[in-house]
Computed example of a mutant assay.
Amino acid sequence: MVRSLRISHQESRHVTTTTAHRATAVAARAMELSKVYGHGETQVVALDRVTVDFPQGEFTAIMGPSGSGKSTLMHCVAGLERVIDMVGLSGRLHHRPAQLSGGQQQRVAVARALASQPEIIFGDEPTGNLDSRSGAEVLGFLRNSVQALGQTVVMVTHDPVAASYADRVVFLADGRIVDEMLAPTADGVLDRMKAFDAKGRTS
């Protein structure tokens, strides 16, 4: 099954989702994706003709400086700029929200999302409001859902440690994909981000 979405009006994109041929399948694809906000002197190019694949059964992290377009990319690829918060917890799905901490509420949300067996899960800073222990539990859950269940995960994060749970990190700067790292480590991602920051200060 293949689903394609094309949208115009300050935004040009072609996003494809497929479930065929698992070994080489692409869960989502952006082709020549552009997103522009504003007009004239206030115009901001959030995405500049980005082309990227998100393979099925892979955990991909999207990173970049603030304003690089990473959240915009994820929102567009997700379709209709919607985001599902992803974190895992299986013991408290029937508790009332007031009985749960903020972190537990996030983890219940992802457990419910995974129960519906979505083709792809998108998370925008899914551990941003969690303490380090809860964040590690969430990331471990997402990592396991990829390895054990063949789930596809795309996550935006500023955190090199969070990114190290992914199979691949895609780096954005000024609305463009500028680098990619396979089998990332926290130190490797941090070094790459420092290099981008240094380049930005001297450009």
Rank of each mutant, 00 (worst) to 15 (best):
E125L: 00
L114Y: 10
N144M: 10
A113D: 05
A111V: 00
A115M: 11
F122V: 03
E125F: 06
D131G: 05
E137G: 00
A115Q: 10
G140H: 11
R107W: 05
A111R: 05
G103A: 02
S134A: 14
D131P: 05
Q106H: 09
R96V: 00
Q104L: 10
P97V: 10
P97C: 08
R133W: 08
N144H: 10
L139F: 02
G135R: 01
G123C: 12
E119G: 13
H95K: 15
Q99T: 05
Q99H: 11
D85A: 07
V87K: 06
S90C: 12
R133F: 05
L93K: 04
V146T: 15
M86S: 10
A136R: 14
R112G: 02
V83E: 14
S132C: 00
Q99E: 15
T127S: 09
R82G: 01
I84C: 11
R133V: 13
N144L: 08
L100K: 02
G123K: 07
G123Q: 06
A109V: 04
R82K: 11
P97T: 06
R107Q: 12
R82S: 13
H94S: 14
F141G: 13
R112M: 07
Q99R: 08
P118W: 08
V146I: 11
P126R: 01
E81N: 11
H95W: 13
Q106G: 10
F141R: 00
R92W: 01
M86G: 12
R96D: 09
E81A: 13
A98M: 06
D131S: 04
R82C: 09
E119K: 04
H94T: 15
E119A: 04
L100F: 07
H95D: 15
R96L: 09
G140I: 07
L130C: 08
F122K: 06
G140W: 08
F122Q: 09
V146G: 06
G91R: 13
E119Q: 14
S132I: 03
G128W: 05
D131F: 05
V146M: 09
V87A: 15
L130D: 04
D131T: 08
D131Y: 04
V87C: 10
L114S: 09
L93V: 07
H95C: 15
G135E: 10
D85W: 09
S134V: 13
E137R: 10
S145F: 01
A113M: 11
A136D: 13
A115G: 06
A109G: 01
P118Q: 04
L89F: 00
Q99K: 11
V138R: 01
N129P: 01
A111M: 11
G103P: 03
I84D: 09
I120C: 01
V110G: 15
R107Y: 07
V110C: 12
F122H: 06
F141T: 14
E81D: 15
H95N: 12
H94D: 15
D124K: 05
R92K: 12
G103T: 10
Q105T: 07
G135A: 10
R143N: 05
Q105C: 14
M86C: 09
P126F: 03
